[in-house]
């Protein structure tokens, strides 16, 4: 499945990675070769094989519905780039 320049730009946009044209060209080359390597998978017949999401066939354990966390806003916001009145600030979101 050949990769095109537009695919790289699209992935970069979906992943919110700023990429200029020349960087995109550079990645196109790398990613193309990685996908070529990955494409070996297409040659394998997996008819009837169930996908494996986790290496162990374990099932989800459930947590009791208890409030165990206390307010740590001050600690958590110490590593935040921009806060005011306890809120994280971002450039205005247009609804």
């Amino acid at each position: 499945m050949a990769l095109e320049h537009a695919d790289v730009l699209r992935a970069a946009h979906l992943a919110r990675l700023g990429l200029d044209e020349s960087e995109a060209a550079h990645y196109l080359d790398d990613l193309g070769r990685i996908l070529e390597m990955v494409d070996q998978l297409q040659g394998l017949d997996t008819e009837g094989v169930a996908p494996l999401a986790h290496p162990l066939d374990a099932t989800q354990r459930l947590r009791a519905d208890e409030v165990t966390e206390t307010d740590q806003r001050e600690t958590f916001q110490r590593c935040a780039p921009a806060v005011e009145n306890g809120l994280y600030l971002v450039p205005r979101v247009v609804e």
Binding site: R63, D65, E66, V67, T68, E69, D71, Q72, R73, F76, Q77, N85, G86, L87, Y88
Partner: peptide
Amino acid sequence: TRSKIFSGASTAFGAEPNTQACAVDLGL
């Protein structure tokens, strides 16, 4: 529920901003 779906933070309505957002809720 009393606590969140994936964390032990309270779900009570109307608390001060971000005081009920624990490490898991913040995606640290």
